[in-house]
Design a binder for these strands. Sequence first.
DNA 1: GCCCAGGTGAAGC
DNA 2: GCTTCACATGGG
Length: 291
Amino acid sequence: MVTAASSTFLAVRDYDLGATLDCGQAFRWRRLPGPGWAGVVAGHWVRLCAVPGGLEAQVAEPVADWGWLRHYLQVDLDLEAVLRTFPADPPLQAAVAACRGLRLLRQDPWECLASFILSSTKQIVQIRQIVELLCARHGEPVAVPPGAEPAFAFPSAARVAGLGEGELRACKMGFRAPHLLGAARRVAAGELDLGRLPGLSLAEARGRLMSLRGVGDKIADCVLLFAGGFPGAFPVDVWVRRALRELYFPRRRPSPRRLREFADTHFGPQAGYAQQYLFHYMRTHAPAALP
DNA sequence: GCCCAGGTGAAGC
DNA sequence: GCTTCACATGGG
């Protein structure tokens, strides 16, 4: 007999909660005035706090099974084993040293796809604003504890598919509105089954996502890395491009193709993890401090 | 005002 | 193949 509870302790080593929730892979976590973070995972309002030896999690309504949260947070992943697969080059080792405990989450594929469709040429703060607006206006309310701010689930593909482009543009997403609408329709109609992506090869899965208008290789790789369980997916955005150029190709002008080839061959089987360390390192450390 | 932002797709060499 | 540009919108 399993007892339902509204809080639990997740034992885990090497988990930098702040870096993980705030490194630009997910957009719905908010730092609370007190300790911890609040967000919505799988339809549950969740509060997370870093505590000695692990994480403390709280939900609004008791649950008997915490598997969904363990999976999302990837607390059972052996981070040391991942880091051991990295090449021993100085730039990457510097990034790892600076960002120890940074983890990749395992997000819901639709939320991840939709969020990154909305991310193109937007700063992370603005992506958060757009996503929050979309959720507040079109997501289902979820239960929150007394005193907490209202919270909403991420609107389903079917829900978004039923909206008009004007309603989406009203969420400040600009030219991305038709891209999101098109993706929602394809997913809601079952033409693109995001749940089946993990069964495909990386190239096949990438191709399926890139058949959506507004989804190129960068956004496709974000979805595959952050939600699809493809550790070899390697999103190349402005920050990572800058990192690769400055750290690995100083005073040269590698073509996009050359950069892509380097990204896909240099970093090993967990290249996507390496990418996130480089990304976070570039964003949180002044360029002058780079090795 | 100007430049840039976790890009993409089309058009031009 | 590579470079340039439009596409909305807001922050610095």
